[in-house]
Design a protein around this nucleic acid. Structure first.
Length: 602
RNA sequence: GCGGCUGUGAUCUAGUCUGGUUAGGAUCGGAGCUUCCCAAGCUUCUUGCCCGGGUUCGAAUCCCGGCAGCCGCACCA
């Protein structure tokens, strides 16, 4: 299959998706060419190169930065402007407690041991697989206990092993002088949104559902970053946290997207095949067939699909794959990844996870702040309840400082289960039993009015890896017209340069007219590139490599009749138009309100 | 993290085995010429032996260490 034939696959309809036969080995040669082009033209390159480079870090050059900027603009347009989610911005450096609560401190960790003799490092759980069914769930103490119990030695040299120590994928730092206040560079932007839930809930006038987004950098100290931009130690994410009532996983705008036909690859059997085939069905069907569990999941899969389409990622190189039980993150109940086929195989570009109530509940517990939603009843509910009513005075006199804890324990008891015979009650405080006499409390039937219910919201999280999307887009936009004539076929709105504008030759009279054209185009907020060096063909070629959709050329005829030629990148067709109409026509072309073939020649 | 292979201007590459002139070529890029519409041609110019140490009179070349890349295994999501 040639590159060009592969390109034609992209134009196939959704119905073809199931049968699309993509030769993955054919793709592997592309990576090198694309990395070369990216470096030469200023899209991206490995960081710190003059000092030997550093794995897992990439710089964006001028074109890459603009491209990514455009992708983010479109993301914002959908999620912030259209959907109305609120964008916030929280710090990268985050105190340790946040990650204690979120579970990252524990779960984002591998326990390692080192040989004291040959200093070979090992993953501790790997050494215990024969002695425990799930050694990765053990804590350091248990691991050390078992290493001693089974007398495990270094598998390489037989030497004694060190104590187990955690290797955490988070970058650690100190906040302020000294080393007492430990901080971490966030491994996801999500926590910044969770820990502000109470403020955001107020901002949204105490109603759910609502969505909060954050676009920013995240950090993971990957053990071995590979595959260029796919696995980075510092990367950018755009994340949405959509807070919902767990008893209502519908979505108000579900109707709008339910008809979208989307290539899905559910967990389990379908993925175990050598060449897994996706099922292209509508979201509505997917819900009926229980492939998707809820309207919200369906909605965000749909919205993600629309976003990826709008930046130019579609067709058989796009699929949504469900995570299997074992591969889900510690916080996830269900997870679907949007995957894009590149020369590195199918790569996860967006993760859409149902994080259930996990994060908010944990922050409730660890912070002591109430992060919860009150669901108001339409009518207050009245009911008669038997309750233990404490006599504070009597209890306080008897138990002094302990009385606070005892009171709390007593009030927790179910009034119906307290015997009516006037016998004392037993409560257990910090492992000790106390007998509480009846003179300290009584059991009463009271009328309770309940105005609403406090619930912990569930969270649906679409999380976009911007670097991966940027890379996947560059790769999927790449094609060769003839041998070694390279073109990036970006959609006009995402292209880093909207148009190249050239004098046919660098003659003062032509340059003058060209500059006037450029001034008018820049006033339309278009990103214009001027070039007068080399032959005209060379300049077109430069723009094709940069993915610029249109070029405008001013020649000697322009001086006579006020017309210019406008050239389309993919067809290389040209049409002459009046200079006066140029800004409007070019702007409409870029917004795709006008198709190039429909331009009437002047 | 382990093992194998590799590292020459921005890119591709000759030279490395067998140490010895000023590291050669092409592309890209810059300046200029050319009424120049698809990488045309001509003149001219810039940028390089991954880093550090060792062996040697002398290292791109041999040795050691590091860094980076690719492949496989492992790991991670």
């Amino acid at each position: 299959m040639t590159e060009l034939e592969r390109d034609s696959d992209i134009d196939k309809t959704d119905d073809d998706v199931e049968n699309a036969d993509i030769d993955e080995s054919e793709l592997s040669g592309r990576a090198g060419k694309i990395i070369t082009l990216a470096k030469r033209r200023g899209f991206f390159w490995n960081s710190n190169e003059i000092y030997g480079g550093s794995a897992g870090f990439y710089d964006y050059g001028p074109l890459g930065t603009r491209l990514e900027c455009n992708l983010v603009d479109i993301w914002r347009d959908i999620f912030v402007i259209q959907e109305g989610y609120a964008e916030i911005s929280t710090p990268v450096i985050t105190p340790e407690m946040v990650f204690s609560a979120s579970g990252h401190l524990k779960e984002f960790t591998d326990l390692m041991v080192e040989c004291k003799k040959c200093s070979e490092p090992f993953r501790a759980d790997q050494l215990l697989t024969e002695h425990h069914p799930q050694p990765d769930n053990l804590n350091a103490e248990e691991v050390n206990g078992m290493l001693t119990e089974f007398g495990i030695k270094c598998p390489v040299c037989g030497g004694a092993l060190s104590e187990a120590y955690p290797f955490n994928l988070m970058f650690k730092t100190n906040i302020g002088p000294g080393s007492k206040r430990i901080g971490y560079l966030r491994p996801e932007t999500a926590q910044g949104m969770f820990i502000n839930f109470h403020l955001l809930y107020r901002y949204f006038r105490e109603k759910i559902p609502f969505g909060v987004v954050q676009i920013g950098r995240a950090f993971r100290n990957e053990i071995s970053p590979r595959q260029g931009m796919i696995r980075l130690r510092e990367f950018k994410m755009a994340e949405l946290e959509y807070f919902i009532d767990p008893s209502d996983k519908s979505h108000p705008k579900y109707e709008r997207i339910k008809g979208l036909k989307i290539p899905l690859l559910p967990a389990g059997k379908p993925q175990e095949e050598a060449k897994p085939t996706t099922v292209a069905i509508t979201l509505e069907e997917a819900i009926e067939k229980k492939i998707l569990g809820s309207e919200v999941m369906a909605y965000f899969i749909g919205l993600t699909y629309e976003y990826l389409n709008s930046i130019g990622l579609s067709g058989p190189s796009l699929r949504f794959r469900q995570h299997g039980e074992k591969e889900k993150a510690h916080y996830a109940e269900d997870c679907w990844d949007a995957e894009i086929l590149t020369s590195f195989g199918w790569i996860e570009c967006v993760g859409i996870a149902d994080r259930s109530c996990y994060d908010i509940e944990r922050h409730n517990e660890y912070s002591g702040h109430t992060l919860a939603v009150t669901i108001h009843h339409e009518q207050p509910i009245e009911r008669e309840v038997k309750k233990v009513i404490v006599d504070n005075k009597a209890l306080g006199k008897k138990f002094k400082a302990l009385s606070v804890k005892i009171k709390a324990a007593l009030e927790k008891l179910d009034g119906n289960k307290v015997a009516d015979d006037g016998s004392p009650l037993k409560v257990n405080i910090d492992g000790k039993d106390y007998e509480i006499d009846r003179d300290c409390f009584e059991v009463k039937t009271v009328t309770e009015k309940e105005f609403g219910k406090k619930i912990i919201p569930h969270v649906i999280e679409p999380s976009f890896g911007l670097d991966r999307i940027t890379f996947a887009l560059i790769e999927n936009s790449y094609y060769e017209r003839e041998s070694s004539y390279r073109v990036l076929r970006f959609k006009p709105q995402v292209a880093p340069i909207n148009a190249g504008v050239f004098p046919l030759m660098a003659k003062p009279e032509l340059v003058e007219v060209t500059q006037k054209c450029i001034e008018n185009l820049k006033n339309m907020k278009l990103n214009i590139f001027y070039d007068d060096s080399g032959s005209i063909g060379r300049r077109y070629a430069r723009m094709d490599e940069a993915g610029t959709p249109f070029c405008v050329t001013i020649d000697y005829d322009s001086l006579k009749d006020n017309t210019v030629t406008i050239r389309e990148r993919d067809s290389t067709d040209q049409v002459r138009i009046k200079i006066a109409n140029l800004p409007k026509i070019l702007n409409d072309l870029i917004e795709e309100k006008l198709i190039f073939k429909e331009i009437k020649a002047a």
